[in-house]
């Protein structure tokens, strides 16, 4: 059975247009699934819904989010928070804003272990030291006592990764974890996340708009357009032969670093029109 199973999840702006249209996807234990799509396609929204951090301006209008067989949406808020905190974690997009500027690094890694999971403080601190070593941060004792502003963006992202893995979660949502980073650092961070995932056997929901990243770290992917899953494939199948016309156009639009002269290929208008028609048909009640 899959660890995370999203069934027909619909989300919309309160009294506004739909943002997710009956999205279904599964993440098996230890699987890395990519969520791709253009800006506004709703890929981050799925991660937020799973982690219970949807903004107050949106509401869930239907569907289920099954975590280890339990529908999170049916749990009372407190139980839902505890369950998510104990078995899921987030690697956020922007390491510069995701650490609390007035807390030291140490407590920001150990807080969940101590406050939510009831570890003794000494055990949690030992764990934090091990994690910093694992994400290749030298002088862990100095870093644990540092404040976020004393560390570089790359360092902070490593710390956030360490913090995400702290409680050995079953599932991590990585929300464009390299987008805010310097290109030279992006590759290292990506390698680090992939390596940690493999060692810990954590399932990963990897939100990105970069198909190159998907081909390197993911086993499966879901392609979203306008809040609808248009393709759900294994990565190898997808890159060999994408099934949906939009997927094919998206793949063709990926810039090729080996051939800069080729320039950029936009997604053709007729493909956009076709996929928009699909969305419209869905909204009208037809089967997409």
């Amino acid at each position: 059975m899959s660890f995370l199973s999203i069934r027909n999840l619909s989300v919309r702006l309160k009294k506004g247009p739909p943002l997710l249209r009956r999205v279904s996807l599964d993440v098996q234990a230890g699987e890395v699934r990519g969520l791709v799509g253009e800006s506004g396609a709703g890929k981050s929204m799925i991660g937020k819904a799973v982690l219970g951090i949807l903004p107050p301006s949106v509401e869930i209008t239907g569907g289920e989010i099954l975590l280890d067989g339990t529908d999170l949406l049916r749990l009372p808020p407190k139980d839902r928070r505890r369950r998510i905190g104990a078995s899921c974690a987030l690697i956020p997009q922007d390491p510069l804003t995701a650490l609390n500027p007035s807390h030291r690094i140490g407590p920001q890694i150990t807080d969940r272990l101590v406050d939510i999971l009831g570890w003794p403080r000494s055990a949690a601190e030992a764990r934090a030291r091990d994690l910093l070593a694992e994400v290749q941060i030298p002088e862990p004792d100095r870093v644990l006592r540092a404040y976020p502003h004393e560390l570089s963006g790359g360092m902070r992202q490593r710390i956030l990764i360490a913090s995400a893995f702290a409680a050995e979660p079953k599932l991590i949502v990585a929300d464009e974890p390299t987008t805010a980073l310097d290109v030279t650092v992006q590759k290292q961070i990506l390698k680090l996340i992939a390596g940690m995932q493999a060692r810990h056997g954590t399932a990963l929901l990897f939100v990105t708009h970069d198909l190159g990243v998907v081909s390197k770290v993911c086993q499966n992917l879901s392609v979203l357009y306008s809040g609808m899953v248009v393709e759900d494939s294994a990565v190898t199948d997808f890159f060999a032969a994408p099934r949906h016309p939009y997927s094919r156009a998206l793949l063709a639009a990926t810039p090729k670093y080996t051939d800069p002269a080729a320039g950029l290929t936009p997604v053709p208008d007729e493909v956009i029109a076709a996929v928009r028609a699909e969305v419209a048909a869905f909204d009208a009640g037809g089967i997409a």
């Binding site: 982690l51 219970g52 407190k78 998510i84 905190g85 987030l90 807080d111 969940r112 406050d115 939510i116």
Partner: peptide, 16 residues
């Protein structure tokens, strides 16, 4: 802010 959202995913309730 992002760090508050991150704290929510850790299991903290609104008051905390």
């Amino acid at each position: 802010l992002d760090y508050v959202t991150l704290a929510r995913t850790k299991g903290y309730g609104e008051t905390r």
